[in-house]
Design a protein around this nucleic acid. Structure first.
Lengths: 259, 259
DNA sequence: AAGCGTCGGTTCAAATAGTGAACCAATTCG
DNA sequence: CGAATTGGTTCACTATTTGAACCGACGCTT
C-alpha cells in the first residue's frame, strides 16, 4: 500500500476517535509501528491536518481541513443550501434530521439538525454510515446503478443489532421497495430503538450524491407515521436537489469508484 | 522530502487554484512528474480529498475535508461561535469582515461576511494571508511571542503593491504600534485601494489562535474612521475569544511550530 | 486528411524513500 | 521503589517511489 494511503488512513482513524489520543494508542489502533506513526503524524501536523496539544501531547484533527472545506463549500455549496431545508424538516417532523454525502465509496454524515423534543435520537457528525444498516445507505443504493449495490452486498455485512438485515436477498428486496416508494425505511438496523427513513439527493442525471434522513425513537412511530415521515424526507431531498442543481450549478459529474 | 509532504503539498496547490485543472496543469504547477502527480491524485481521490470530474477529467477538492472539518467544528466550534459576531460586525461597520485561523504556520481565511454595500471589498475564503502585508497578519504577530514575528520577517518579503512594507524595521514599528493600540492597520498592503484593520482572537493564555479583520475601500476611510473600525474589530475579536474560551471549552494548547 | 501538439494515462528499471527493532528519558502506577 | 507505561529517536535494511519513454485519443492548423 502507498505511504500516502497509510497516512490518510491514519488521519481517518483519528477522525473516528471520540476523544484525543496519544502516539502509542494511535499506532496500536492503526497497526503501524510507533516510529512510522510518529513520522506520519509529524508530517500531517506540518500541513495542519492534525494538531498536537502542547500539554497532553495528544493528537487531534487540525485546522487545514476546515480551510479546504470552506473552499469546497464556496464552489459547491452543498451544506449551506441544504441546512435551511434540514432545519425546516426537523421543525416539521419534530425529529432528528441528518444529511450525508457520498465520497470515496463511503456515505458520511455531514450535518445534523436535532429534534426539538427532549427525548430524541442523537447522531454524530462525521460518522460513516454503513450502507446495509441505515436508511441513508439503502436510499443511496436504491437509486444508484445496480452495480454499486451488488458491490456493497458482496462484502461481509456486520449485524449491529439483532434486527440488522445482513442477507443479500433481504437487502435486495428492501432496495426494490425503496426504489418504488421513493424513500427507504430502516427499523433498528444500526441502533436498537431507532427507526429511520431517508431519500437521496440527486444530481440532474439522477445519480445520488448524498441523502437526507429522519431518525426517530421507535416508540414514537407506527406504520402510518413512518410513511408520513418518509414523504416529508423525500420532499426535502427533492428540494435540496433542486436548490442545488436548479440554478447556476455547473452540475459536476462524479466518477463512481469502488469503495 | 517525504512522499506524504509532497502529496499534501499537491493538495494545497489544488486548493489555491481558482478553477478546476487537469493532470498536466497540476503536474506543471507543482513541478512534479506527470506519473507521480497522477499516483498522488489517485491516492488522494481514493480517500476523498480530491474528486475527478468524470466528464472533463479535471480535479477538484473532494468531500472528505468537509467531513473532517465538521468533526473538528463539533469539538472546537470556532466558526459557529464566531460567525454571529462577524455578522453583527459587518452590519455595524457596513464593511466586509473576515475571520482567519492560524494553522501549520499560516494564517488562512475561513469565513467572510460581505459588506451590505454595493461597493465593497471581496475576500476569498480559503486564501492564505501573508503576515507582513495584511492587517490580520500584523495583528497576529503583534500578540504572538516575538520569536514568531522575527522568523516571519527573516524570510524574503514580497511587495504586493507599492505600499507593501517589506523592510523589517518598518514592520517591527508597525507591530509595536499594533501591540500598544490593540488592533492593526494595513493601508493597501496586499491590494491597492483597500485599507484593513484587524485584532487577534486569543486563547486564555494570551496566544492568538486567529484574527478578525475589516477590509474597506480606501475612499471610505479617513484617519478617524479607521480608528473607529479598529475599535469595533478589537471589540469583536475579544467577544469571540470570550465566547469560545469562556464556557466549557477545554482551552487546548497549541504547539507553535515554525512555518 | 495529414501533421502537430497536447491531453490523460501507463510501464518498469533505477534510485530513493520508508521501515521498525532496539534504544532513550520521563512519567505513571502499584 | 521498581515495573510498565509513555513520547520520541536512531540507523541498517529493504520496499516503495520515481520519471523517461511510451500509448492512444483528442483538437487544432495547414
Amino acid at each position: 500500500m502507498s505511504t500516502i494511503g497509510k497516512a490518510l488512513g491514519l488521519l481517518d482513524a483519528i477522525s473516528r476517535l471520540d476523544r484525543e489520543h496519544g502516539l502509542s494508542d494511535i499506532a496500536r489502533l492503526c497497526a503501524l509501528d510507533k516510529a512510522t506513526t510518529r513520522r506520519f503524524l509529524v508530517e500531517l501536523e506540518r500541513h495542519g491536518f492534525v494538531e498536537q496539544d502542547a500539554e497532553t501531547r495528544k493528537y487531534r484533527i487540525g485546522a487545514e481541513p476546515v480551510r479546504l472545506a470552506r473552499i469546497r463549500e464556496a464552489r459547491f455549496p452543498f451544506l449551506s443550501l441544504a441546512v435551511p431545508v434540514l432545519r425546516d424538516l426537523a421543525a416539521a417532523s419534530t425529529e432528528t434530521v441528518h444529511l450525508a454525502e457520498y465520497s470515496a465509496g463511503r456515505l458520511s454524515n455531514i450535518h445534523v439538525e436535532m429534534s426539538p423534543r427532549a427525548h430524541c435520537v442523537t447522531v454524530d457528525v462525521g460518522s460513516v454510515l454503513p450502507f446495509h444498516a441505515t436508511a441513508s445507505g439503502l436510499a443511496f443504493l436504491a437509486f444508484s446503478p445496480a452495480g454499486l449495490a451488488e458491490q456493497m452486498l458482496a462484502e461481509p455485512l456486520q449485524a449491529f443489532t439483532r434486527y440488522t438485515l445482513t442477507r443479500a436477498p433481504d437487502l435486495r428486496a428492501m432496495l426494490a421497495e425503496t426504489a418504488e416508494r421513493g424513500f427507504s425505511i430502516s427499523r433498528q438496523g444500526l441502533e436498537a430503538g431507532v427507526v429511520s427513513t431517508a431519500a437521496p439527493v440527486r444530481a440532474p442525471d439522477g445519480t445520488p450524491i448524498g441523502t437526507v434522513a429522519i431518525a426517530a425513537p421507535l416508540v414514537r412511530v407506527n406504520a402510518v407515521r413512518i410513511l408520513e415521515l418518509g414523504q416529508q424526507v423525500a420532499e426535502a431531498a427533492g428540494q435540496i436537489s433542486d436548490a442545488f442543481f436548479g440554478l447556476g450549478q455547473p452540475a459536476p459529474t462524479l466518477s463512481r469508484k469502488a469503495g
